[in-house]
């Protein structure tokens, strides 16, 4: 049986964290990665699709709005809807929201400026295929680098996300508290990353791939890719079973409606 995983990294015109994800997967984790060109319609049998950070189409109009219509995105949407593991980082998160694969939207930072620095993140749900290598409540230091990272959604959507344990990462201070001061962009309820109802699509604004190489002195982000590797291996030994040990009871019952219904038009 094949071992390991192959990660497909989509390259939109203007993607600029594609190579960083590539290095995290290959140099950081020792797994395989390949680039998927935006004009392509072939996912090349990858196990995981990553929509990387950057400024696809210059972020003109709205961040992620134009990339969402790339030819490759039809395949990515089918892949994700079919349960394929899909990770959107920063601009990739914006694309996932524009494509309505995740609810909500990302708007300009509260202070209207681009911000780049390490933030404190708390792992809110270690039961997803993206976070199983973390422990619940783990505190991480991961960089952000964005101008439009303020997560917004209707109150009912936010309530639903919380009720279903779909908030995966929150911005927190050094003591692990989700304070307003620890919120770098004004995101609703300090939300830094969320999953869809089925738990196979994660979007987050911080960049785990930038803290995945030991030479840089911080590997807080590497466990995201380690978790994916574990999930891919599990899927291979038990095909069709995407459940992870810590998945909250009841989460799967919400699955059907949430994808279609929860998006906030932006």
């Amino acid at each position: 049986m094949e071992v390991g995983m192959k990660v497909g990294i989509v390259r939109f015109p203007g993607s600029n964290c594609d190579a960083d994800v590539y290095r995290a997967v290959t140099d950081g984790l020792g797994e395989r990665a390949t680039y998927l060109w935006h004009k392509s319609t072939d996912l090349e049998g990858v196990d995981v699709v990553v929509l990387p950070g950057g400024f696809s189409y210059g972020d003109y109009l709205r961040a992620g709005a134009i990339a969402r219509f790339s030819p490759i995105m039809r395949e990515v949407i089918d892949f994700a809807r079919g349960g394929g593991l899909t990770l959107g980082i920063c601009n990739g998160f914006q694309v996932l929201c524009e494509a309505h694969l995740l609810p909500g939207a990302l708007v300009r930072n509260r202070n209207l400026r681009f911000r780049c620095h390490d933030v404190g993140l708390r792992v809110e749900n270690a039961g997803t295929p993206f976070t199983s290598a973390y422990g619940e409540g783990d505190l991480l230091h991961i960089p952000i680098a964005h101008g439009e990272g303020q997560f917004v959604a209707e109150a009912s959507t936010l309530d639903e996300l919380e009720a279903e344990n779909r908030v995966v990462f929150r911005y927190v201070d050094r003591r692990g508290q989700a304070t307003d001061a620890a919120n770098p962009n004004g995101s609703a309820r300090n939300i830094a990353g969320i999953v869809n109802a089925e738990g196979n699509i994660l979007g987050l604004m911080p960049h785990p791939e930038r803290h995945s190489l030991s030479v840089l002195g911080n590997t807080d982000g590497l466990a995201v890719f380690q978790s994916l590797l574990a999930a891919v291996s599990r899927e291979r030994s038990h095909p069709g079973d995407r459940r992870t040990d810590a998945a909250p009871p009841g989460a799967r019952e919400f699955a059907a409606g949430a994808v279609a219904g929860a998006g906030v038009s932006s």
Binding site: A19, D20, F114, R115, C116, A145, E209, R210, G217
Partner: peptide, 25 residues
């Protein structure tokens, strides 16, 4: 100033702004 700049993309930054010299691998 430098929090408005992306200082870590490309994952080469060993010492960023605030140091006497920036150091990149």
């Amino acid at each position: 100033i430098h929090e408005q700049y992306d200082t870590t993309v490309q994952t080469n930054t060993l010492e960023g702004p605030g140091s006497d010299a920036a150091v990149l691998r």
